[in-house]
Write a protein that binds this DNA or RNA. Structure first.
Lengths: 195, 195
DNA sequence: GTCTATATATTGATAGAC
DNA sequence: GTCTATCAATATATAGAC
């Protein structure tokens, strides 16, 4: 157990990175083992199947997303929190243009693979939608309206990343995030009357 | 040459459907040949590589998208055209929730595969962005503003489909398209002042 | 716990008879 | 033009020595 966790962690970290950069289907367990500097056979000691590995990656990502949300809650107002949420995407635009969104990319791929992976990959979106919806409720929107706003905001982020990734244009992503931030400020300023 | 075109067409049609339903990487040429009721070896008579095949699929899709745009231009006003554009997604929500967007799904996958496929898959988005931008220009927006609006609209559509696909929720997509339509009507009604 | 060797299946692609 | 047979590479996964 001394450095056992270390190896397992290296495998998960490599899997997470390669699934993001190359995609789940395209990445082989041999690729992951090589990147983690671990023999291929060893991967199977920690994870019975490739699905088990991606499930662990998703769980880790969900934990990370929750932690990030807690960090965002340090901002004083719901508006500031949502602005910071978008700012994170803005600051990661280069990576997003190069490799897409790690959450969206896996969700897209998993949606087609179906079964258990699809369910798990989608869970990250649910966590995000819940948190963003909370912020809109804190802004005074009723639950149904807040959920709609959350869907629209997350969809705008995901769609912008997809367009930016598809064209390799990080600036497209940055500008889209700035417009979303401006729209949020307008929304609060005008007393929640407009889109 | 009598039924040669027929076979080629069957292969392309099957490839198009399977790439959409299962994804490009996951779909094997054997799957396509079986679906098209053609022996595997015959596929290679018409297409030297899998990349050649997907390139043909994308070209066909681009032609279809252009034809659809021409059809949309029968609507009397730019607003009606964009509303119809969104209505098409609305009406195809069940398929989109089940299999995602054929354009977005391939663009996402191709973005990571890189090279020639990425370029070609992204070309469909460029065609769409160009047409949507035209409509905004017809509504009185300057070129730069119109392009931004087009990016935001296409991104909203793509993100909504991704969220709907990820959760298998067609109603999410339908409602999102309705909100986008309503926002467009508001935009025109209020004299292009708001988001 | 760790690693080598390998089983088994499937892939994209080719050779060559018809 | 069409199709069968097959190659060579690669995938996930397992067996079993250490």
């Amino acid at each position: 157990m001394s450095n056992a966790g270390i190896k397992r962690e290296r495998i998960v970290r490599s899997a997470k990175a390669l699934f993001h950069e190359r995609g789940y289907t395209v990445t082989s367990l041999a690729d992951i083992a090589q990147e983690a500097k671990v023999p291929l056979g060893n991967v199977y000691y920690y994870f019975k199947t490739k699905e088990d590995l991606v499930a662990t990656v998703v769980e880790g990502r969900n934990e990370y997303v929750r932690a990030r949300h807690r960090a965002l809650e340090k901002a004083p107002t719901p508006l500031a929190r949502l602005e910071d949420f978008l700012q994170r995407i803005h600051d990661a635009a280069d990576s997003r243009a190069a490799h897409g969104c790690p959450v969206g990319g896996l969700a897209q791929e998993a949606g087609k693979l179906g079964g258990r992976i699809a369910q798990e990959a989608g869970s990250t979106f649910q966590i995000m939608l819940e948190w963003v919806g909370e912020q809109y409720r804190a802004l005074g929107f009723k639950p149904g309206q807040a959920r709609e706003r959350a869907v629209d905001l997350v969809a705008a982020v995901q769609g912008s990343i997809l367009l930016g990734h598809s064209s390799g244009d990080a600036e497209l992503i940055r500008r889209a995030m700035q417009r979303l931030q401006a729209r949020l400020r307008l929304l609060v300023k005008e007393g929640k009357r407009h889109a």
